[in-house]
Design a protein around this nucleic acid. Structure first.
Lengths: 158, 158
DNA sequence: CTCGGTGCAAAGCTTTTGCATCCGC
DNA sequence: GCGGATGCAAAAGCTTTGCACCGAG
């Protein structure tokens, strides 16, 4: 997934966005983008900050939040509000992924992705009926995964 | 909606839940439930607390949060994490309502409810395929309402 | 009478803000 | 060099927690 080509692509997109809004192309912003795309799965602002810190790349949390917001604006990152107990915003890289939604195990907090094209049908139908210009959506299914290691994961994750 | 019959019904459900869990039937808990069901639409913990305070019914916020959690557990209230800017938990009474989802205007923060039965199909299909016991879901469409008074609402709500 | 619940205020946690400094342009 | 961006720490805002007191069972 994280091929050099992808890195080049997302950098191009981000830089184009930065230039369009007449912002500055700072090393911190690019480093945060790269770090995000080197990760897999979901993360929160603090986890991202810690993993950069672990690599001895010091950025302030304010900059992390600031950059995440920019990346959400230009659709390179998606922000989620999973109701995982805490009110913690989770993020996810989005370039190159096909649109997908999430299924969350309420016991072990595992997050699984899925995609059902019929959701698009619902989305456009509802938009038409209610006269809304729907730009994006969030669909989350909550339940119990029936995996035997579910409780084990719980200890590791929470 | 808030007929005496409904009030009696929800009280019965809540009390049954309280007894089943061997908790105490305090006046605060019942008052909070009644206040919630006298409201329409969505609210957050603070708004609920303020409206009770305005009626000179003093409850501590800790009790409000505690009771909301109980009510969510026994399905009399649903908790939402709309990404309305802030990470603020919103609540909604749920007894007697048919299941519905939400459409949020990103400009004026208006919340509209809708229902599409096809979502149930998707839900059970995904549950089967991924071997999850799906208990509930959250679907939110984000967009722009095309209402002329949209910006006006924005000023009033934010 | 017992012990769970309440109230109050303080603490916790995520996110935002203010301000001096820094550096992209 | 100018003005936006960063870093740091303090502040803000929602939610949880600790503890003394109260009251439901």
């Amino acid at each position: 997934m994280m091929t050099p080509q992808v890195l080049e692509e997302i950098n191009k997109i981000f830089i184009a966005y930065i230039e369009q809004k007449q912002l500055r192309k700072t090393p911190e912003r690019l480093a945060i983008l790269e770090e995000i795309y080197s990760r897999t799965d979901h993360f929160d602002a603090d986890e991202l900050w810690i993993s950069m810190d672990n690599k001895n790349y010091r950025v302030s949390k304010a900059t992390v939040y600031n950059t995440l917001e920019l990346l959400v604006e230009c659709n390179l990152v998606v922000k989620h509000q999973f109701g995982n107990g805490k009110n913690l915003a989770q993020y996810e890289k989005s370039y190159g992924y096909k649109q997908h939604d999430h299924l969350i195990c309420m016991k072990c907090h595992q997050v699984i992705e899925f995609c059902d094209p019929r959701l698009q049908t619902i989305q456009s139908k509802i938009g038409d009926i209610l006269n809304f210009n729907i730009l994006h959506h969030s669909l989350i299914f909550y339940g119990d995964c029936t995996k035997e290691n579910c409780e084990k994961n719980k200890k590791a994750n929470v």
